[in-house]
Write a protein that binds this DNA or RNA. Structure first.
Lengths: 261, 261
DNA sequence: ACTGCCAAACAACCCATGTTATTCCTACAG
DNA sequence: CTGTAGGAATAACATGGGTTGTTTGGCAGT
């Protein structure tokens, strides 16, 4: 029970009770933290990929630069997220990674994951669950981009962030910080920044979203979710620790009574 | 060296040399094959999710029905693919699954995967690599939908299938079968079937794609790839068995000399 | 206080794609 | 041989969102 502040450990504990041994393994993924500055690019597409990293502090996003000069933002990462799984099977990065805020990140090499596989079935399963959930997020984003109008896309984007923040325990009565420019939001939603602005204006008139600089306020989150056709199953249903019941054979240290959810 | 015809074993062997024990484990994922008919829906959104399945024969696709009546096709599965990973952490299906062709599929429960985690680090790593590659496919599809014109989307879609088929060893001098209707293609690309038709017509005039019923012919695959801004790294770079060098501690059976690729 | 910079708002115009409807073709059942 | 149904091609029209350019307002550095 060393530094219980680790967000990775908190994240993993959501899925499953962890033994002390497991926690020690997880701590090894957070060695050598590095301070980063807002806007800093941690890696670019095509860079050599032999590491993951965990985000301890700050937000980040992954992106692809298109040859027509535009850019697609693929995922938003928040503290506790593990970044770079996509390239586990690859030798090059497929997407860039950049910091939004100042923050702190920790690198660890791919082979460190092999240690985890070898040592803890529980952690392996949780990792799988995390990747699975991550894929669910991506899928939802894909549907969002392919099938919905600009209003719905933006509503969905905002509401997803709102939900994710709520899940990590922030109180938030509809208020939160969204440290993205309209251009970045457009890059995430496949829209021009002009149209993002238009859409925000429209939301303001409808009293759905009030935005001032980076402060967001949702007077009526429910209505926003409906507009976006938001189905939160892909966010909320994911904390079922079914699989841990099967993996309890390796419980070597007694104190695994952290109730999950 | 039982039935060496198993497509799962072939798939896994692409990533890493497998011990006999590993192969035996994999075979257990292909027990109880079930014959399926073209068009058959194997599961719907919201169904209970406690199984994966592997596709032994035929093509399948996953989809989401939107409340406006439209439908988004998310992924195409071909023989050897494992389906349903997305819901490992969930209790419900997030997407439906339907067969395109007649085919054969095999179900196995989530907890069978725990056996794999417990028993074979190699297979665990390969599974991770497969999921990672799968995520790369999804990411690319996302970029495709968000940022490209209808022509580019269709070109990308066709060329991706062409490449995937080539990788599984079909000879294919630009000819292949694509058993999808224009409406299904539209559902996959976020386009109306009418516009898919328009775009095919345009491709025909440009001598880029000749389509007759379900037979496709690409007179100039290179040109198509360029139009689509196709970067094949996300398909081809994925067979680097780096991680196996670290996992060789469990090699209990001598005959692991299946050369990878 | 002055200057310069950048995010954001707004307007005018344009084009890619959606929508609807009609016709044609082929497969298939009787 | 005929009737029917689904896939595909094509045309006419509608519209959401992109593009470009201008204006505004806040903030940082001097």
């Amino acid at each position: 029970m060393e530094q219980e502040d680790s967000c990775i450990i908190r994240l993993f504990s959501n899925y499953c009770a962890l033994s002390e041994e497991d926690k020690r393994l997880l701590h090894r993924l957070e060695e050598s933290p590095i301070e980063t500055r807002a806007g800093q690019v941690l890696w670019e597409e095509c860079d050599k990929a032999s590491e993951f990293c965990t985000i301890s502090k700050g937000w980040a996003y992954s992106f692809r630069n298109m040859d027509d000069g535009s850019r697609q933002i693929l995922e938003l990462f928040m503290p506790g997220d593990i970044v770079g799984m996509r390239e586990f099977a690859f030798s090059q990065r497929l997407t860039g990674l950049a910091m939004i805020d100042d923050g702190v990140i920790c690198h660890f090499p791919h082979h460190r994951l092999m240690d985890v596989f070898r040592t803890s079935t529980t952690l392996t399963a949780v990792l799988f669950a995390i990747v699975s959930r991550h894929q669910a997020l991506l899928t939802e984003r894909l549907v969002n981009l392919a099938r919905r109008s600009a209003q719905q896309r933006l509503a969905h984007f905002i509401y997803e962030i709102y939900e994710r923040l709520n899940q990590t325990g922030a109180p938030s009565d509809g208020h939160f910080r969204l440290p993205l420019s309209q251009e970045q939001i457009g890059d995430a939603l496949g829209l021009s920044s002009v149209h993002v602005s238009r859409t925000f204006t429209s939301f303001r008139k409808q009293h759905l979203v009030l935005r001032e600089r980076h402060r967001m306020h949702l007077p009526n989150p429910q209505a926003l979710a409906e507009l976006a056709d938001f189905d939160s199953r892909y966010l909320n249903d994911s904390l079922k620790p079914i699989f841990c019941d099967n993996g309890k054979q390796e419980r070597q240290n007694g104190s695994s009574n952290v109730t999950t959810e």
